[in-house]
Write a protein that binds this DNA or RNA. Structure first.
Length: 914
RNA sequence: GGGCGGUUAGCUCAGUUGGUUAGAGCACUUGCCUUACAAGCAAGGGGUGACUGGUUCGAGUCCAGUACCGCCCACCA
């Protein structure tokens, strides 16, 4: 397996990382090795996330990519931490939404669902579901999602459908599901009832028509105001406030409904706001929720004048058959002709639209099934108050609570075909309803076999609400249910806190007696580069699959071609953009950041792999004295970073996790440690032993830390590293895990933390930067060997720097380096004054003395100002007496150092004057 | 009508319990194809922290108010 060492090994490592050559291969390996699988294991602690099941309406968008990346980071991290981690995958049948997209695709063929019939249409939808369900799964896999795919569920699977029926029947028997004739929201295009949450309120320019209703047997009249004149055809009364003096005399009188010439009473009801309009309202019980309630109070007739298709009914007299909006126009014309239209006001008001097709919904009187929410919601409120469910960021708890506190009964029946049939059978003989989990053979009351199942299906969110336990096997008491429930965390988007999160908590508490998850992480919303929500109509979406593997995409009316950044780059970029659930403005070019980072890591890995190839790294523990200063430094940094990264993932601080690794990997490891290790490796022999081991160990750990966010890349390098360093570790080398995905998360080794090494390194870096700075400033050739002199402020600083002299000299490209305390500035040299020391570089003839003098003068000025501010602060008794002593001490130290630097600068300036 | 989020460098955004000179990526300037990497290296420029006031020895950070942008909720006949 490893005859590929040496030069041929390097040939296998392209200079640019090519994700397309790497990612599909590892996906196959992970799947074949069962690395994503999880099963109850009492020896381990469970960790479980259920995926928010994507709708099978179409392919995934960038919001899914973000949501799933975050879940995968959590699951991979938990798995490496030794948890028995399950990520439960699946998809949602998405009732109305899917029925709509299939209807649209039928329409393109000139077909209507009625032509296919119910069974034919449902077959067609299953076909659609098969196609998009598998496309979604493939997209998730391509993104690297480590779900246990054996367990994939669909909300209309047999098992989940049984769970739905069990819940319906259970709630029915408890009296929490009931049937009633009520005013519900009706979509005239979808031809179905909708719940309150499925209505989107959109503010629109509208009008307020003032219409005069003549009183019977009188010349007087009452004027009402309405935004919906067409509904007046269904009026049953007019109402005034009982305390309204203006209209007291009319209460009990009769008005004649114009056009219909129907006599109706004038009633008094406290719902009327005397201050609004004329203080008189029309009451239309069948077309307005308030009026419906008023109608019940006053026993008024419910006259339906707008039918389920949005056309006026036979009860609308001569307007029967007209579309509701056409009827409005005609009716207003007629009222005007009759002289009953008093005035028309322009007005903004919000109208309810169907969240799936944007049609304006109608309040519609019909027989529907409802869930009684109050008892269920109260438990969900209590769970949150008791801290059994908490939100991250915490502010979403209030949103969740306010919905639960104000929730009304939930209309769950839908007059569509795609979904779970309501488990109710109507008897053709006696009319009895039989409510059972399995289809009954005979009527529960009269025993007749003439049974017909209720034609309606359930709201899609009814089944989604059961997802955390239905996917684990409920109602059966499976080992999975006992082991993984309650799940650990739910990661989702804020727009389904009501639809889904709250309902899962309610159903979980009711049927499992426990919350479905302890924490809810609400991720931000992905917006386009202009801050607009991504949508098909705006043509501003970014297809995650195109970003991953390249391809063409139409945006803003233009066709773009993308080369593909790879799944890791997409994941890493999304991770860096995830701060505290903030929304994310995304442009395709943002993924360059992730791609560049991974390419950088690839090249750092290439370097390590090529240097380690063919080198005997030894089998003995690395003796502490064999560790160079730079080794101690990088190991110290690694120990810190391992702890930080762990806490950051556990605390859902995804951006910080990505940033911590970025700074360590690119900054510390690549920019510094790799450069420091080069000469030591080149020296060969014993000198190369320790650095080789530190190198493989550090890269090993870095790959582990990166794995949750960049799984493909890290797994690839892990396997290559295994070829050149099959056994790793600073103690007795141990065989590395065969696959990184199942390797252990690094235990932060506190004993490696070396504050002294970190501080000294910082000092050395500053000296090196100072030399480079001077070089750049005076445009010196990078290779010109300079005689660098460092003048330390005291012995301690000199002694710290002295052992690092070789390193500093090499990195600064200096020919020689002298370090001493209080060394005088060599003549004709440039200087950098910094904390604790000065750096001098001889620049005879290369330096413009006048320019340098000016620069020093400017710097001196800045320091003088800073010193003045410091002095003022330190002379302020309020400060010195009230600020913590350590803060005062720090400021005093600063002052001393600042004064020292100013002294040096002044001396410098004076020397240049000569 | 109620609530929430945002306003920091040219752009997109970070900033942990208030405490040195407010950071990053991109863009920009200068010099480099230095045998891991030009998707890179080195150095550098760039900020009245939306505005007003308050608390404090000290405010980007805490409080109050204002403005603008975005989102959510609401039985506004």
């Amino acid at each position: 397996m490893s005859e590929t060492k040496g030069e041929s090994f390097a040939d296998r490592l392209p200079k640019h990382y090519v994700p397309a050559d790497v990612e599909p291969r590892w996906l196959e390996t992970w799947l074949a090795s069962g690395s994503f699988r999880s099963a109850p294991d009492r020896a381990k602690k469970p960790y479980c996330i259920v995926i928010p099941p994507p709708n099978v309406t179409g392919i995934l968008h960038m919001g899914h990519a973000l949501n799933c990346t975050l879940q995968d980071i959590l699951v991979r991290h938990a798995r490496m931490r030794g948890y028995e981690a399950l990520w439960m995958p699946g998809t949602d049948h998405a009732g109305i939404a899917t029925q709509n997209v299939v209807e649209r695709s039928l329409a393109e063929e000139g077909l209507h669902r009625d032509a296919l019939g119910r069974d034919g249409f449902i077959d067609r939808v299953w076909g659609w579901r098969g196609k998009y369900g598998s496309a979604i799964v493939n997209q998730l896999k391509r993104l690297g999602c480590s779900c246990d795919w054996r367990r994939e569920r669909f909300t209309m699977d047999d098992g989940l459908s049984r769970a739905v029926r069990e819940v319906f029947v259970g709630l029915y028997k408890e009296g929490l599901v009931y049937r009633g004739r009520r005013l519900i929201n009706w979509c005239v295009r979808c031809r179905t009832a909708l719940s309150d949450d499925e209505i989107e309120h959109v503010e629109k320019q509208s009008r307020l028509w003032h219409i005069r209703y003549p009183l019977k047997d009188s010349r007087k009249s009452l004027t009402i105001a309405t935004t919906r004149p067409e509904t007046m055809l269904g009026d049953a009364a007019v109402a005034v406030h009982p305390d309204d003096e203006r209209y007291r005399e009319f209460v009990g009188a009769t008005v004649v409904l114009p056009v219909m010439n129907r006599e109706m009473p004038v009633i008094a009801d406290a719902m009327v706001d005397p201050a609004f309009g004329s203080g008189v309202v029309k009451i239309t019980p069948a077309h307005d929720p308030n009026d419906f309630e008023a109608g019940l109070r006053h026993d008024l007739e419910q006259i339906t004048v707008i039918g389920p298709d949005g056309a006026m009914t036979g009860a609308a007299g001569k307007y029967a058959g007209l579309d509701r909006f056409r009827a409005r126009e005609k009716l207003v014309e007629e009222l005007e002709e009759l002289g009953l239209l008093v005035k028309v006001e322009e007005r903004r008001n919000s109208v309810g639209q169907c969240y799936r097709c944007d049609q304006i919904v109608e309040p519609f009187l019909s027989e529907q099934w409802f869930v009684s929410m109050r008892p269920l919601a109260d438990k969900a409120i209590q769970a949150s108050r008791d801290g059994k469910v908490s939100f991250v960021p915490a502010r979403w708890e209030r949103v969740y609570l306010s919905w639960l506190e104000n929730v009304r009964d939930w209309c769950i029946s839908r007059q569509i075909w795609w979904g779970h049939r309501i488990p109710v059978w109507h008897c053709g003989a006696c009319g009895e309803m039989t409510v059972e989990v399995e289809a009954p053979a005979a009527c529960s009351k009269c025993g007749s076999g003439r049974l017909a199942q209720d034609p309606d299906v359930l709201d899609t969110w009814f089944s989604s609400a059961l997802w955390p336990f239905s996917t684990l096997g409920w109602p059966d008491e499976t080992p999975e249910l006992g082991y993984y429930y309650p799940t650990t965390v739910l990661v989702t988007a804020r727009d389904i806190i009501y639809f889904w999160v709250a309902r899962m908590v309610m159903m979980g508490l009711h049927f499992m007696k426990e919350v479905p998850f302890g924490e809810v992480y609400i991720n931000g919303t992905i917006l386009d580069e202009n801050g607009a929500r991504m949508s098909k109509s705006r043509e501003n979406g970014i297809d995650p699959l195109v970003m991953i593997q390249g391809g063409r995409q139409r945006r803003f009316g233009k066709e773009f071609s993308y080369e593909g950044y790879g799944a890791d780059a997409v994941r890493y970029t999304l991770c860096t953009l995830t701060t505290d659930g903030q929304d994310i403005k995304l442009a395709p070019t943002r993924f360059e950041m992730g791609r560049n980072f991974i390419n950088k890591m690839w090249n750092a890995s290439r370097f390590v792999l090529m240097r380690l190839a063919g080198v005997d790294q030894g089998t003995e523990p690395v003796a502490p004295e064999a560790l160079d200063f730079s080794d101690r430094w990088i190991l110290s940094r690694l120990a810190r970073v391992a702890g930080d990264a762990d806490r950051q993932i556990a605390g859902y601080r995804f951006h910080e996790y990505a940033k911590t690794l970025y700074e360590f990997a690119w900054g510390d490891f690549c920019d510094w440690y790799l450069e420091l290790v080069k000469p030591r490796l080149s020296a060969g022999g014993n000198a190369a032993g320790a650095p080789a081991r530190v190198l493989s160990w550090t890269l090993d750990n870095l790959l582990r830390l990166l794995h949750p966010v960049t799984p493909f890349f890290s797994e690839e390098v892990w396997s290559l590293l295994a070829e050149v360093a099959p056994a790793r570790g600073l103690g007795v080398p141990e065989a590395a895990a065969p696959l990184l995905i199942r390797a252990a998360w690094p235990e932060p080794d506190e004993s490696r933390i070396d504050a002294r090494a970190e501080a000294d390194m910082e000092q050395a870096m500053n000296v090196i930067r100072a030399v480079r700075n001077v070089r750049a400033k005076f445009n010196l050739p990078p290779k010109a060997p300079l005689a660098v002199t460092v003048s330390a402020a005291d012995d301690a600083i000199r002694d710290a720097l002295l052992p690092l002299a070789d390193m500093v000299r090499a990195q600064a490209g200096a020919g020689s380096l002298d370090i001493g305390v209080g060394v005088r500035k060599p003549p004709q040299s440039a200087a950098e004054v910094m904390t604790g020391l000065q750096v001098y570089l001889p620049l005879a003839g290369l330096m413009n003395v006048e320019v340098e003098r000016k620069r020093i003068g400017k710097e001196l000025g800045k320091k003088r100002d800073a010193l003045a501010r410091l002095n003022e602060k330190l002379c302020n008794y309020e400060f010195t007496s009230k600020a913590p002593p350590e803060v005062v001490k720090r400021e005093e130290d600063r002052k001393v150092e600042l004064a020292r630097q100013m002294g040096e600068l002044e001396a410098l300036r004076d020397s240049l004057a000569n």
